[in-house]
Amino acid sequence: MNDALRSKRQSKGMTMQDMANHVGISKSYYSLIERGERRVSYELTFKIANALNTTPDNIFLDFQSTLSKHSDKKAIK
């Protein structure tokens, strides 16, 4: 989920600190989420989606798209 979240956050001009403040967690915890080192609750997923002016399903669709791109690159090599 890391690339999709990072991409969306950056496209909104938000820093990790901005996002963490918006959703009510620490910057270090948000960083762990972006790196894929922490699972995200449904509640936090909705807060993150709200901060990005999107819906949780769009975040997951972007994540699936990112996975597909990485899989395609590995298949090409």
Rank of each mutant, 00 (worst) to 15 (best):
L32F: 07
R35F: 00
S26P: 02
E43I: 11
I33P: 08
K73H: 14
Y29N: 05
L44R: 12
T15F: 15
I59M: 12
Y29R: 10
I48C: 08
N21V: 04
V40P: 07
T45G: 13
F60L: 14
L44G: 01
N58G: 04
S26Y: 03
I59R: 05
T66N: 15
D72Y: 09
E43W: 06
S65R: 08
I76M: 12
Q10F: 02
I25G: 01
L61P: 00
K47C: 00
L52Y: 10
R6Q: 11
A51R: 04
K73L: 09
S11D: 07
L67T: 01
L61V: 06
Q64M: 07
M16A: 11
T45K: 13
D3T: 11
L61Q: 05
D62Y: 05
K73M: 12
L32G: 07
N58S: 11
K12E: 09
E34F: 00
I76K: 12
K8E: 06
I76S: 11
G36K: 01
I48W: 11
D72S: 15
S11T: 11
R39H: 08
A20N: 14
K73R: 14
H22R: 14
T55E: 15
T15E: 06
T66V: 09
P56M: 10
L44N: 01
M19C: 09
A4P: 04
M1L: 07
F63L: 11
D57V: 15
Q10D: 00
V23G: 01
G24M: 10
Y30H: 13
T45E: 10
V23H: 02
L32P: 09
G24V: 05
T15Q: 06
L52M: 10
G24N: 09
R35P: 01
I33Y: 02
N53Y: 03
N58T: 04
I48R: 10
H22C: 14
Q64E: 05
K8Q: 06
P56N: 04
A75Y: 07
N53W: 01
L32I: 05
R38A: 01
I25R: 05
A51Y: 06
E37V: 00
N53C: 04
A20M: 09
N2G: 15
E43Q: 15
S11Y: 03
T55Y: 11
H22G: 09
S65G: 02
L5A: 08
V40H: 00
N2D: 04
K77F: 09
V40Q: 00
M19T: 06
D18R: 03
S26A: 00
T66D: 13
Y42F: 02
G13H: 06
Y29P: 06
D18I: 00
I25H: 00
N53Q: 06
S11P: 00
N53K: 08
N21I: 04
